[in-house]
């Protein structure tokens, strides 16, 4: 194997590893509660890549109406996990209050102790209703 080939192969491996690393850079640096976001003049969340992600106040209003007095317990953005081990097109929601929000939107039942498993059409529906307050995390395992 020539030096050039070895360099190329190493480069490809590095690029692949980097791809895995950067695929989740849209996750928040720190999640913020719905109450705190409502208090902000312009609601935003700081992401891992350093950008400030603006949140639509109409979505906050919608979530407030949906949750009522539990609104301060909800941390935003709602994280939906795409786990490879579950198979393609299957997603998990682990957060307790977020599970309630998602179940209300989809009109499905959920169990308090178990994570809520949703499928791709459900995800599309959720993203349509809450485009700025939900985010998807890609897990390679």
């Amino acid at each position: 194997m020539g030096v050039r080939d070895a360099y190329f192969e190493d480069l490809v491996t590095r690029v692949l590893t980097r791809e895995l690393r950067i695929v989740n850079r849209h996750l928040p640096y720190k999640r913020v509660s719905l109450c705190d976001l409502e208090k902000m003049d312009i609601p935003y969340i700081v992401l891992r890549d350093g950008t400030a992600h603006l949140i639509d106040p109409r979505e906050l209003e919608y979530l407030t109406n949906l949750l009522g007095k539990d609104k301060c317990k909800l941390l935003l953005p709602i994280i939906i996990e795409a786990r490879q081990s579950l198979g393609e097109g299957t997603y998990i929601v682990r957060d307790r209050v977020a599970k309630r929000v998602i179940a209300e939107i989809l009109g499905v039942e959920y169990e308090e102790e178990k994570p809520l498993i949703i499928y791709r059409p459900h995800l599309y529906k959720i993203r349509e209703v809450l485009p700025t307050t939900t985010t998807i995390i890609f897990s390679p395992t």
Binding site: I22, V23, N24, R25, H26, I42, Y44, L47, D49, T51, A52, H53, L54, P131, T132, T135, I136
Partner: peptide
Amino acid sequence: VIGFENIMGVK
């Protein structure tokens, strides 16, 4: 107000 929106890593 002008800012950024991050859609699955797309700024």
